[in-house]
């Protein structure tokens, strides 16, 4: 499936843009958005920034929040449905650190 991901770094990028990553369906069957981001990071683009440095992966810490198809969600809990296109953005109103990472709330 295709995943569109918001990319931006203040001071370097004039404005945000989107990258589209093609992730094999079998790699993310019954997976979460976090699984997909890990797949992209390990196999396609290690420069992608998303919350991962102290991540519980089970909806405990609440720190991996981002916007999935326009709605705020935890990356480690949001489920992927390969039939529905996926667009990922940082949560609004907090300021972007880089890519999907927002200024910690």
């Amino acid at each position: 499936m295709e995943i569109r991901v918001f990319r931006y770094l203040a001071g370097r990028d004039k404005e945000p843009y989107y990258d589209t990553f093609r992730v094999p369906d079998e790699a993310i069957r019954e997976a979460t958005v976090m699984d997909a981001l890990n797949y992209i990071s390990e196999n396609i683009d290690p420069t992608l920034a998303y919350y991962r440095h102290s991540a519980c992966n089970h909806g405990i810490c609440g720190r991996c929040v981002l916007e999935v198809n326009g709605k705020p969600a935890l990356a480690c809990e949001a489920r992927i449905d390969s039939a529905i296109p996926l667009v990922l953005k940082p949560v609004p109103n907090r300021g972007v650190v880089r890519d999907l990472v927002a200024v910690p709330g």
Partner: peptide, 13 residues
């Protein structure tokens, strides 16, 4: 480490 920025750099981590 491909990313040149130090900002939330997972490769550096």
């Amino acid at each position: 480490i491909k990313e040149k920025s130090r900002t939330y750099n997972l490769e550096l981590l």
